[in-house]
Each structure stands twice: as structure tokens, then as C-alpha cells.
Amino acid sequence: MQPKSSKKVITRRDFIKTGGYAAAGSLLGLPLLDRAAAQAAVKSRVVLIRDPDVVDSQGRVNETVLESMLDRAVTTLLGAPNPRSAWQQLFRPGDVVGIKSNVWYRLPTPEALEKALVFRLQQVGVNPNDIAVDDRDILENPVFMRSTALINVRPMRTHHWSGLGTLLKNYIMFVPAPWMYHGNACERLGAIWQKSQVTGKTRLNILVMLTPLFHGIGPHHYSSRYVWPYAGLIVSTDPVAADATGARIIEAKRNAFFGGSRPISPLPLHISAADTRFGLGTSSPERIELIRMGWGDQILI
């Protein structure tokens, strides 16, 4: 008889025991195998800001409105008296800052938002040569290679393998073989955040909810039928809390659109795993302080 393997294999029965699959789609999360951050007593603050004028009927972005939303959100998030002060809490002149964007052509990070971030960084004294915006080439980008700080900014969308394209998933380009993380609905994405070139560097996370994609079809996983003008930004220093908040909005939109329970498929296990297994933040709504700002119509959360 051969020896049993020592590593604990996670099986469906682990989920069944904790009710994770019984409540399919409820974003409940993984079994408590290796809970790291769950005991955190302090709530993670998340700012959700919306403005109906930020996108027009064609999906074009109003730069002025977007910049204003960003400033108001960051200022509120940090409890600062003004935007400049808020950004000074996050960055200092000697920082080397990589802005991890997302270039997926169907739903890229708005260029206006990237510009606004660069502007604010320069305003607090970060050298322009020490700022880079990149996505696919970050492993070769000299600024990212010597970065002391990161800003994570991307639109939220459904995703074929991970359930959702999230802030957590946005760092997959920090590894040379992203497909190695596709197993089990990309549940291990949190491990990327523990790598040396990433860990401890992310100062700000911005989940773009201007026109999120709430359902995908076909090889391209996109249809204009399944995007809507939510006109929001979710801003937090906690990527898990920001993603969990965005996920709840996507889930609510799916249920409303399809007229009944239509869980995100596959379940975005990586969000709760980032909390319970990797200790990157907070996924439970009870441990998130959600601050709603601006337009409240059809807010879905």
C-alpha cells in the first residue's frame, strides 16, 4: 500500500460541509482551511462613488467628471481635507510608482483615469520618470521592476475562468505563466500578491464600474447586450473588499437582468480565498465599511 499524500486536497465535500455550494453564487467563500485575515477586527473601508454624467449613451467618458469622482472618492477614503492631502498620505516624492492598468480592448481602463492618476502623483512630487502605466509588459517595464509602490486600476467584468475579472486578478501579469493560475476558477490568484515584486506595494485600488460587463458569451466573452452604464468607481486600499463589493453589484445586476438567481459562473472563488487563505483583505460584507457617494439610482447594493 502506498503512502497517502501529506498535502490536504481541497474537495467539493469541503464546500458542502460549509454550505459553500449549497448557496451557489452567494460568494460565501472557501472552507476555513487556512483562515488568515478573518479575525481582523477592523473593517475595510470601501468608497463607492457614482455620477450619471461620467459616461454618455455611447459609453464615452467625461474626463472632468471622472477626475472629480476620483478625487472625492480618495479624499473620503482617507478622511483627508482635500485631494492633495489625500494623495500625500499615499505617496511621497521618492516613490517609484507602477500603475497596473488593463488593456483588454473590449473594456480597457479609461485613459482619462490613467492620466488623472499620473497627474495626482506628479502633484505630490513623484518624478515623471518614476511613473509608468502598463499592463502586459510589466515584467519588463523598468519602472515596475524598481517600483516602490503600485496603483491597481481596472474595469470589472465577468471572466471565463475566474468568474470575474477583478483587482486581484489584474496582477496576473506579474507572473510569466498566467495560465498556471487558471485552475479551480483561478482560486489561487491571491498567491501572486505574495510575490516579492508585488507584496506590500499596493497603495490604492480602483475598480472601474463605469460600464461593467455582467455576463459573457462566446470565445470573446463579450456582448454589448451585457454591459450597462453603472457609472461608478469603487476605491479602497483593500483589494479584496473592493472586489467583493463589485462582485455583489454584478451578482445583483445578473439577477435583475435574467429575472431570478443567475450566479456568476464560475463562482469567483479567488475573492474569498484572497481573504481566508492569503490574508490579503476582507471579503465579508459584515467587515466592510461601505461608503456610498453620489448617484443612488439603481445602485444595487
Binding site: 498535502k7 481541497i10 474537495t11 467539493r12 455550494y21 475562468w161 485552475g183 479551480n184 476558477a185 464560475p266
Partner: peptide, 15 residues
């Protein structure tokens, strides 16, 4: 296994 797990999650390894 990635396709099986997409339709019916069973294991985190290729048991």
C-alpha cells in the same frame, strides 16, 4: 481537469 472543474468542481488537484 480545468473543464471538469468549470462544470462541476471536485478537487483542487488532478486526483
Amino acid at each position: 481537469p480545468i473543464v471538469l472543474n468549470y462544470h462541476y468542481y471536485l478537487f483542487d488537484e488532478n486526483i
